[in-house]
């Protein structure tokens, strides 16, 4: 499976978890939504969503590292926390996890 193949299912899964955990109607959750600025997801709910996503896909999301990069000003928050970018990172992690499993 290529990264492009993942995107739709990843987004649907991520949006589903955010909708369920944060009680946000799924139609409000768009690929260009910023997790905190647009959807107003608080950090604990986001952590809960990350936990579910990690469990679902068998990956480890380096949330500490991403947050540190943002806090240090090395990247903008949108780099990781706009959903289409977040899902692209999740797809990379999924592809990496699959290649490790296959080797």
């Amino acid at each position: 499976m290529t990264e492009g193949d993942y995107m739709s299912s990843t987004f649907d899964t991520v949006a589903g978890f955010i909708s369920e955990i944060c009680d946000i109607p799924q139609e409000r959750i768009k690929p260009d939504s910023h997790v905190t600025e647009d959807l107003e997801v608080d950090s604990l709910d986001f952590l809960d969503a990350v936990f579910n996503i990690e469990q679902k896909f068998g990956i480890s999301i380096p949330l500490d590292d991403w947050t540190q990069q943002v806090n240090d000003g090395a990247v903008k928050g949108s780099r990781y926390f706009v959903l289409e970018n977040f899902c692209a990172e999740v797809d990379k992690l999924r592809a990496s996890a699959e290649s490790v499993a296959a080797s």
Binding site: V50, F51, E54, Q55, S60, L63, D64
Partner: peptide, 9 residues
Amino acid sequence: AHDGSGYAV
């Protein structure tokens, strides 16, 4: 049960 980045369950 789960070792996350900056969190655990």
